[in-house]
Amino acid sequence: MTPDDRSPSEQDELDELSGLSRRSFLKGAGGGVVAGALAGGLAQPSTSEGVVPQEASAPGASTVSLSGRHQIALQVNGEQVLVDVEPQTTLLGALRHHVSPPMTGTKEVCDRGSCGACTVIVDGRPVYSCMQLADDMPGHAIRTIEGIGTPDDLSPVQEEFCRFDGLMCGFCTPGFIVASTACLEKHGAPDVDTIKRELSGNVCRCGTQTHIIRAVQAAGESGVLKGER
């Protein structure tokens, strides 16, 4: 069935169903409208499945309407990545499900901005990738766990996590590593209170928090600053 087969009312209903609740929640506006300032960064999306982006009808309002699958270009760990997304696709969803090959280091735990497992660095700041729409991300520099060290070449904070056992099951760990990296880049050698504050948006259930705090402190004290290794 193509969109043309449907009656207008049915199409409206389906547009509603296409998961716009998250958009409404994030933007305070329904109807698949992205505010112009945010859409400004959109790299000319090509259309892979009957798609739009088009200027909204309201004169002067710099907005675009999106529906269906379309391609955007993300800048991830210094490389341009073309990815097919839907309007409701989050940055987390794009990384985990739509980038090829998938980047599954960033974890989905709550999918609503309350656990930090999906933390990535956007333009130098840690953000919850589950609370960012993929369509808002072109033009922004995204760093994920995959861009911070490898098993054979760990970053200083990754080394300290291993040394102090700042991980157990490991599911929260990528989010903590990314948030810790952002913390170290911002503060250099942060004190314990600063570390606690900067990592307060990340949740761990196994109970590694005190070891994580020590690991971040040690990484800061080792003097390897500002992330460039």
């Binding site: 974890k107 760990l154 056992d165 700042g166």
Partner: peptide, 20 residues
């Protein structure tokens, strides 16, 4: 130190959620 530490701190460890 955990032998799987390096895999886990770099996000390379694959969990059921991550199977594609």
């Amino acid at each position: 130190p955990r032998v799987d530490g390096p895999e886990k701190v770099t996000g390379r460890a694959i969990y059921t959620h991550d199977i594609r």
